[in-house]
Structure formats: structure tokens, C-alpha cells
Design a protein around this nucleic acid. Structure first.
Lengths: 159, 159
DNA sequence: TCAAATTAGATTGTGCGCAATCGAATTATC
DNA sequence: GATAATTCGATTGCGCACAATCTAATTTGA
């Protein structure tokens, strides 16, 4: 009677969801030593890469909106890792810049990826294979959303 | 100077993390019609499968603890989809049972997996390949945790 | 049998995600 | 150059995740 499509173990989504939580759990102790949460670490990855960025740009790279980023960045600001300043050219824009402490943290964080790979017990080639797998899935999923934006057919009400 | 291991796009974890949010975003409109969030849907999947379950059992299947499950289940209770009752045999245990309304919701939810596969634009074989990929990764990650439990070497303080 | 240890769940507090709404600033249109 | 539309970020509110702590119930063991 129970249709198999509703079995928990048959859900692509559940495996994905559980994997993500399991991986962030692996990161947690490593990032705790740096005083960071996992999304904070991601925001810093972008800043370490680019030096400075607007909130909008961070949102585009991380696929997060201001409701998530604003409080997260404020916490990093009060931890002394970055500054938030409105642009002179366009006062709607807030520019995020690393402080010296923020830049220095990069050296300590540089061990994190390798430590994590060791903990995960994945071989290097497997690690890369999975990374490519996920990245291509991610791209496909984002391509879907772009379609939605362009279509925008006002679907008929369903009453 | 920027070591490539700290580039956002080189993180296995970020692709995984972003994929998960993208997939739950696909689910959201479908589940909204049922009045459910994604984790609530997962809890109901287990109950539709097993009829009833203790909070502990739900936690084991979903890898969630009581701090997450208790309020989630209370919301489903006040939505009239399930009941929470302490076991007579062992009063520490709370048994979760579907109500008639909860059972009836299963029929409406049965379309969700197929609808999602259409939205995701994944071919059936690809869907299964990815599902197996994620499930085997999940198993490996959980195996790691079991190791940690057995080892439990009190690592030396790092000052 | 009675104290200690374990177990199940609840509670509290912090930090995301994300939708919805808002205000201020900028750009476009006429 | 006044008005409308758009853009950027902040705010609010809700629902997870999860660590830490607590209470009550049960099991263990000396």
C-alpha cells in the first residue's frame, strides 16, 4: 500500500540534506578553533579571495540574501574581522572590507581544507569527482531558476 | 598568494551546501500547498512509512535531536496531523501517532516526488545515480562518526 | 534495596535561511 | 525637473539545527 516513492530512503533530497549536515558537523570543531561558524567561514572565503565586496556581491556568490547576510556580517564586524561602510558613490551600497585581524585569520584557516579532507577519509580523486558532481548539479539547479525568471507565465489560479 | 585551497569554488562543502538549499527551494512551493515545511515533510515520510514512532526513533532516522524535533512535532500536532502521547510502559518515551488527517495527507503528498523530479529536470537514471552517490557518501560520513565514538582518545590540549 | 548511572525528552539560547516589508537612494521616463 | 520605477540594504518574524542544561523515569550494581 505504501507507495515506494514516499519512502525516506528513496528521496534524493534527504540524502543530500543529511550529507550537508554531516559535512558541516565535520567542519564545526575545526572552525570553532577560529571562532567561526560555517556560513561565516564561507563569507570570509569570498573576502580572502577578493579583498573587499559589497553585500550584494557576497549574496550573489553565496546565494544568500540580505536577511541572512546582514546579521552574519554584523557579527563578524563586532568580532573585529571586517568593517561595513556605505559607498560614497552610491549610498545604497555597503562595502565590506577585511581588517588586519580578518586578513591574519586566513593563515590559520589555510589548514582547514586539508584537515577536513583527512577527516572525511576521502581519497583525492574521489574528492574531486564528488566536487565536480555537486558543482554540475548546482549549475543545473540554478539554470532552472533562470528559466523560471524568464518564463514568468502567470499561472492560472487553481480553485 | 591566495592558496587555491581556500577558493570558494574549490570547496566540496560549498557545492553541497548550495545544492541542498536549491533543492529545498524546489520543494517549497509543492509543500506549501500541503502546509508543510521540508523537515516536517521528512518527519511525515517516516510516519507514513511506519504508522507510529517514538521521538527517539524519528531522531535516529532523520539524524535530528530532540531540540529540533520537539518543537517541530508540536507544530504538526497543533496542525492536527499527529498526536503525542507518553508511553505507559516507559514514561520517558513519547509516542507519535498520525491522526486521520495526517494519514489523509499522504494521498496528496504522493504526487510530490514525481512533481519534484519533473521540476528538477533530471532524467530517471541520473536521478538514481545521484541518489546512490549521496547515499553512499552519507553512509561513509556516518561511519566516520561511529569511529569517533569508539576511539574517544582524549586529544592533547593544543596550547 | 538504595544510590549511581543511564536514558528520553523538554527547554533555552544562538545562529542561520528565507519570505515579506520597509526606507532611502538612484535611475528612468516623460 | 517632477514623478515613477527600480535597487540596495535593513528589519521582522518564523522555522529549523544544534549545543548545553535540566527533569523525570528507568536500569544497574554493590
Amino acid at each position: 500500500m505504501s507507495d515506494e516513492h514516499l519512502l525516506l530512503d528513496n528521496q534524493l533530497c534527504f540524502a543530500l540534506y543529511a550529507c550537508t549536515r554531516e559535512v558541516t558537523r565535520l567542519y564545526r570543531p575545526l572552525l570553532e578553533e577560529l571562532g567561526l561558524t560555517y556560513p561565516q567561514y564561507l563569507a570570509l572565503l569570498v573576502l580572502w579571495e577578493e579583498g573587499e565586496a559589497t553585500v550584494k556581491h557576497l549574496g550573489e556568490r553565496l546565494f544568500l540574501d540580505s536577511g541572512t547576510l546582514t546579521p552574519l556580517l554584523k557579527r563578524l564586524e563586532s568580532a573585529g574581522l571586517l568593517t561595513r561602510e556605505r559607498s560614497r558613490a552610491d549610498e545604497r551600497v555597503v562595502i565590506i572590507r577585511l581588517t588586519d585581524a580578518g586578513r591574519e585569520l586566513k593563515a590559520r584557516a589555510s589548514e582547514v581544507p586539508h584537515k577536513l579532507m583527512c577527516k572525511s577519509n576521502l581519497a583525492l580523486d574521489e574528492y574531486h569527482r564528488l566536487k565536480n558532481e555537486f558543482n554540475s548539479l548546482l549549475q543545473r539547479l540554478h539554470a532552472l531558476q533562470d528559466e523560471d525568471d524568464t518564463e514568468k507565465a502567470p499561472r492560472p489560479p487553481r480553485v
